[in-house]
Design a protein around this nucleic acid. Sequence first.
DNA 1: CCTACAAATGAACACCTGTTCATATGTACG
DNA 2: CGTACATATGAACAGGTGTTCATTTGTAGG
Lengths: 113, 113
Amino acid sequence: MTKIHALRPRPRTLSDDHAAELADLFRLLGDATRLRIVLACLEAPVPVGEIAARLGLSGSLVSHHLRLLRAASIVRAERQGKQVFYAAADDHVRRIVADMMEHMAEPKSEEDA
Amino acid sequence: MTKIHALRPRPRTLSDDHAAELADLFRLLGDATRLRIVLACLEAPVPVGEIAARLGLSGSLVSHHLRLLRAASIVRAERQGKQVFYAAADDHVRRIVADMMEHMAEPKSEEDA
DNA sequence: CCTACAAATGAACACCTGTTCATATGTACG
DNA sequence: CGTACATATGAACAGGTGTTCATTTGTAGG
């Protein structure tokens, strides 16, 4: 009741803070290494070591990226013994990635000079 | 016939080049200013000047960003007299943005320390 | 042709971010 | 407890990127 908020069905233009927050999420997927890490654990939980091995990266680097991804709830972590398994947080992530892949596969109307 | 490509239904792990290309697309949406520009012309074509005015940005800056977005087929340009109208290229873009908004709105499982 | 307006371009600067290396935390097991 | 393994963290460097300012291109009209 304090703020009329739920009244606006679809805010045509997002508040700048929200836009910045949204941009932060996209930026996380905007790095090739980090995106490959996400792709590596998109379908099933994978331990950090295996991600690093599969992608040919140092465990340190993978861990750094995973922290950012986890903080943004793009991936979820679960400990199992000494290992920590990471997986895509939810279906939104999978859908977004899939949609962007489709977009990439689409024929461009005309090349930009 | 040169490359067996269409045979693999769903490449579980993308080739590194494709991953980099995909990351480039995400990175474009990963800047707050650029994302706001996309949001501004997400539902209907808008001339550059109006985008700049609505967002309180210089025409130069908006133009720079629009060039990148156009090169990636995220937005489409159409000239009408002296003005150039920009709009989201297709529904993929709209869907991706919408999905990411939903993701942002979701409750986080637990805050990251 | 020349003025006025809208958009695009290029160069230069300031800032941010990914990576590496070294070190620390945490967990299992003898 | 001490070793070994897996992951996490911190600091520092290098490279990329958004922004601004000045200039140019393109379009319409007198």
